[in-house]
Amino acid sequence: MKEFAYRRVTEIRDALAAGHGGARYLGGGTNLVDLMKCGVETPTQLVDVRFLPLGEIRETPDGGLAIGATTTNSDLAAHPEVRRRYPALSQAVLAGASGQLRNMATVGGNLMQRTRCAYFADPSQACNKRDPGSGCAAIRGAHHNHAVLGWSPSCVATHASDMAVALAAFDAVVRYETLDGGAEIPLERFYPPVGDTPERETELPAGALITEVVLPGSAVAPRSRYRKVRERASYAFATVSVAAHLEVSRGTVRSVRIALGGVASRPWRARAAESFLLDGPATADRFRAAAETELAAAAPLPGNGYKVPLARNLIAAVLADLAEPY
């Protein structure tokens, strides 16, 4: 690990004043400290933001929730209003990591976590995300857990967050502060397409500090579900996951949101499947056809073709569960 300065801040303006150059904001450190140990992250200063006044979850006037960026994963998943209004968000957070890591990890850090591609974490390997222009060892290497949607020849890594998949399905908005003022980005646009710049992972300006994530009020969110397939029963990253909510009235789909995890460099909002389903019959055949419509764009690598039928079946199964009579 490279040497670094450490500064604990209690005011947002102090965080922003310190958070430039080689500095990184430190939340729970569950990903950042790990990557510092293996030499992937080399900050010159850590700005510890856990003591900023950003640890609350408050209700918004439209019936939504604003989640402070330093809220821990544990507190997010256990919050009664999250469980009541956005159960898929609580389920997604609980499906990730372990009890210890959820106690440490923060919402802001969760959004900023890096891919778990093994080649990214190994500085001896080619990786355009870690070392632009060096190539991608995964495309011709071990990529059974890599992307099938939206990847480019530069990078086939997936995004690791479960939480972000549920946030994408709920139309969440990420708010941040900079020295020039605050702004917000819809979660769906927070992570740019890979293109030939896989090292550019978010749309945040340099030095920006995530302050909160806002969930809009939603009448259908209570009927939502997160389901995750992984290589062991617990404590593993997603092979494929689905966050969805669905409203059916008299056999017709009145509202639907679907987002996929484990298949792309970002949470994959399944807009094509949603459009296919809206105002049509809520039947098993339609759910399956909607999933196939979305996955028509899939381009699996030689070693991860299994993810396409897995995603199709998972989408169809989750929608069928949600369509069960109330």
């Binding site: 450190g29 850590l46 210890q100 106690n103 440490m104």
Partner: peptide, 13 residues
Amino acid sequence: GRRVVSCLTLAVA
């Protein structure tokens, strides 16, 4: 009172 992994916790933090 909350369980954490001390290997990813910096002492200074």
